[in-house]
Structure formats: structure tokens, C-alpha cells
Design a protein around this nucleic acid. Structure first.
Lengths: 101, 101
DNA sequence: TAAAAAATGTAGTTAATTTACAATTAAGGT
DNA sequence: ACCTTAATTGTAAATTAACTACATTTTTTA
């Protein structure tokens, strides 16, 4: 049932602009660019001057980092803690996509 | 397990520009605007001149319509056939969001 | 073949984002 | 207190992406 709902292949293809990511996460655009500069998150901005687009995993990552920041962790510490979860998230993600449900 | 993967609340908040929807679905931007004019799909373009943003359900709808068009259905017929599936999709969607998983 | 449906072309305009500078504020160590 | 590094913020000018509002073309159907 849920398989019909969320097509993981489709979800993973959804790209969201920085303005909309900012709206959804509550993190200012300026900060998102800063985090990308520091390689904390990544977007599909193709060096040669396009616009940044964020995928589901990166948006989820931003939200998780924000939560840890709110708890009082430093940025680096937050990122370290989030990395492991994101790693698993990515794995399950590609596993699901393989399955071709 | 899957609950951790796809946060339905988050997925439903992802908004995608017309250019990216076009890339993902293979439907030209011009046609997407035409379909919206005909109320086949909808976007969050706030009349007062912003840019169109499509959500997951509408993107899924576009893909389903495209498939039926390829099978030879007329646009109207395709839409009619898709509506029922989309209705269920939306229901499950909000049900999941309520659950707050 | 006439009418309606479906799709397309494009010019001029507006919205959203980019980069690349610099400046500011906060936190941690001695 | 002072210094250093981390973290964040401000913004102008340029660029990219999308918009509307026309009109036109192609396809389908009665």
C-alpha cells in the first residue's frame, strides 16, 4: 500500500530551490549557502552558474542539523551526529530504488 | 523502517519548479501550463505573479497522465482515469500525515 | 471539411538566485 | 581581557528561470 504512495525513485528526483528549502526548514538562504560552502550539505548547482537545487536527503539533513543546533550542539558536532543517520537513510533509499516497486 | 525514510509530511512540502517538473516528467513547460489552464493539474502559483511550484501529488499525476496518453487515451480520458487513483493517493497521504510517524 | 481539442512559439517583463566582496557576532582558549 | 576561530549575516550588480499574453499550428473528431 505504502509502495504506491511514495515512489522512492520519484521522491529522490524532486529538486527544491533554495528559497523553498529555506521556507520549509526555517533556515535562511544565506546560511544554507554557507553550509554548502563548508561542505556540510550539497546541492546540484553545476559549478557553471546554474541555480542550487536540493534533494530530499539534503533537506532532511538540514532539518536534523537544525534540531541538534537547537539542542545546543555546535555546528560541527551536529553534523557529525547527523552523518550516521543520513548514511543509513541513503542506503535504504537506494535499496528501495533498486527494488523497483 | 520505511517510516524513517519517507517523512510524508516533508515529502508533501517539497515544491518543485516548472523547469524541474518538466525535466523529471518529460512534459514540456508549455504543456504543463496548458494543463494547468485547463485545471487538469494545479500549482501553488499565487495569482499575484509568483512562480509555479508543483507538489508530489501533482507531479505523480502528471506522470500517470503521460503514461495513459502514451497508451492512446485522449487527454480528457486520461485525466478521468487518473483522478480516482490520485484521490486515493491523497487520502493515504493525509492519513499518514495525521499519524505523525 | 469545418469545428473543437491539443499543443506550440515567442517577445517583453518580472521573479528568484548567484557570486563576490566585506562585515558582524558568538564561543573557546590562554 | 584578549585573541583566534567559528558562525553568521548584508548587499549590489549580474545572471538565470519563469511569467503573461498574445498568436499560431497541428491533431482529432463530428
Amino acid at each position: 500500500m505504502i509502495e504506491n504512495l511514495f515512489d522512492p525513485k520519484l521522491v529522490s528526483q524532486l529538486l527544491v530551490s533554495i528559497g523553498d528549502v529555506s521556507d520549509v526548514t526555517g533556515i535562511p538562504q544565506r546560511k544554507l549557502r554557507y553550509w554548502e560552502d563548508k561542505s556540510i550539505i550539497s546541492s546540484s548547482s553545476t559549478k557553471d552558474g546554474g541555480t542550487r537545487k536540493f534533494d530530499y536527503v539534503n533537506i532532511k539533513k538540514i532539518i536534523l542539523i537544525k534540531e541538534l543546533l537547537n539542542e545546543g550542539y555546535t555546528l560541527d558536532a551536529s553534523v557529525r551526529k547527523v552523518e550516521e543517520r543520513i548514511k543509513k537513510l541513503k542506503e535504504s533509499f537506494s535499496a528501495l530504488q533498486e527494488k523497483q516497486i
